[in-house]
Amino acid sequence: MISFSEENSLLFITVDLDAIVANTSRLKASLRDGVKLLAIVKSDAYGHGILEASRAVLSGGADYLGVVNVKEGLMLREGGISAPTVVLGAILPAEAPLVVSKNLDVTVFNRKTVEALANACQEQNSNVGVFIKVDTGMGRLGVFPDDAIKFAEYVGSISSINIKGLITHFPIADQEDKTFTHKQINIMNSLIGSLREKGFELPLNNCANSAAIIDMPEAQFDMVRAGIAMYGYYPSRYVSRSIELKPALTLRARVMSVKRVKAGTPISYGCRYRPERDTIIGVVPIGYRHGYHRMLSGKAYAIYKGKRVPQVGTICMDMCMYDFGPDSDISDYEWITLLGEEGSEAVWADELAGYAETIMYEILTSLSGRIDRVYIQGGEVVDFKEANCFALNNIISSTR
């Protein structure tokens, strides 16, 4: 039974599952025939909810799911999601038995992991799928290109391990100059060609992220990895808007205290904000512990009745303040939009990222489990995830 009610909430996130389905479907439709789509649902699906988002992207045509660690893979399996899933980060040798028993694919780039997987397969009389991670320029995980063929031959010598393809990561595909990314593509083409000449099938080579999916069809190979674009964002201002995307996550909060203050009244820690005229200040129950970054202090905006309202003063742990202006009709417990759109105005994660001198990914993944989450599909509430750790009524009590 779905128990969410706005009447009993001070603060909540809404995730539009239809938007995730539509974004995924449009990305999939942009691919060449036969190219598969791996949907990245790591980090709680970029803050959207790993189980709910996974079901949505699969409905939108995703063929594979991508997680960062074994625990996330287990969450999918325990949540009843059996779709092909690859662990994109490192795994511990001790996790190899779980990888095999839960039918997870993994990326490999060292012998210890391969040996652990081989032992687990032998013990369970089973097999496992792997992707060989090649570091073509990210400087993170992966074997270097010069070592890739020898490493692939070693992995390929173990009959219980099925090499599904090579995988690499693009660090600057979202920038205007694609020269470096094209060098990475050329390295991948060369390695794939050499290995296929040696008899490796490699049916699912992949390297394209959201930026490359949109702007670089030459990077599609056999499968692509969609992340931020599925959740409604273009990776950077340099990425074309050739595919229509809609942000899926919105954030709303009540104004739990409204007061008229005199010009010069200090607001919040450090007394950094003092209004130049008499005005109305509203206190909202969100702060940096919820993921509303302190770096946004004095820079961000909310929307009230279709108009922008500036955040003022230092953002606190559990609360922050907005200046509604001297003539506002705002009253206690009315709703404002902190992330989303009202009328012709909108505030999205990429805008907040600019104020906080970070990226939209961090804005979205920072929004913590301490915020209620409501899932909408077909205009109806289909799921509700209550805030964990501390109930929101504790925030109310702390302000009395």
Score class of each variant (00 low, 15 high):
Ser190Glu: 15
Asp350Trp: 03
Ile376Ala: 04
Val70Ala: 06
Asp323Lys: 00
Leu88Arg: 11
Tyr269Val: 14
Leu251Gly: 05
Arg26Gly: 05
Phe151Trp: 13
Val258Tyr: 03
Pro326Cys: 07
Leu65Phe: 09
Ile192Phe: 01
Pro326Ser: 09
Thr365Pro: 08
Gly354Ala: 07
Val106His: 06
Gly340Asp: 08
Asn69Gly: 06
Arg196Tyr: 08
Ala208Val: 11
Gly142Arg: 12
Asp63Met: 01
Val258Trp: 00
Asn394Ile: 10
Met256Cys: 03
Gly47Arg: 09
Ala387Pro: 00
Ile359Leu: 12
Val312Gly: 04
Lys150Ile: 15
Val108Arg: 02
Met317His: 12
Ser9Asn: 12
Gln124Asn: 14
Gly313Ile: 08
His169Lys: 10
Gln122Arg: 05
Gly34Asn: 09
Asn23Val: 05
Ile161Asp: 00
Leu352Met: 02
Gly340Trp: 10
Glu7Cys: 06
Lys259Val: 07
Asp332Cys: 06
Leu204Gln: 13
Ser328Trp: 01
Asp278Thr: 07
Ile371Met: 05
Ala346Cys: 04
Ala208Phe: 12
Asp372His: 13
Asn127Arg: 15
Ala83Gln: 08
Thr24Ile: 04
Tyr64Met: 13
Pro171Asp: 14
Ser268Gly: 01
Ile149Asp: 02
Arg225Cys: 09
Gly80Thr: 05
Met223Gly: 13
Ser157Pro: 03
Ile50His: 06
Glu334Leu: 04
Tyr238His: 14
Val284Asp: 06
Gly232His: 03
Glu362Phe: 09
Val86Ala: 15
Leu88Asn: 06
Ile158Cys: 13
Pro326Met: 15
Ser210Asn: 03
Asp327Asn: 11
Pro93Ser: 10
Lys262His: 05
Leu202Thr: 12
Glu6Gly: 05
Gly199Gln: 10
Ile376Phe: 02
Ser82Tyr: 13
Glu218Met: 07
Glu6Met: 08
Gly47Pro: 14
Ala229Cys: 12
Arg32Phe: 07
Glu176Pro: 00
Pro97Tyr: 01
Gly139Pro: 06
Glu276Val: 08
Gly325Tyr: 00
Ser268Met: 01
Asn127His: 12
Ile395Ser: 10
Ala56Tyr: 05
Leu367Thr: 01
Val255His: 01
Arg277Asp: 00
Ile163Lys: 01
Met1Pro: 01
Ile172Glu: 14
Arg400Glu: 00
Gly199Phe: 11
Ile13Thr: 06
Ile280Arg: 07
Cys320His: 14
Phe221Ser: 04
Val99Ser: 11
Ile20Trp: 06
Asn388Trp: 05
His169Phe: 08
Ala346Ser: 08
Leu11Lys: 04
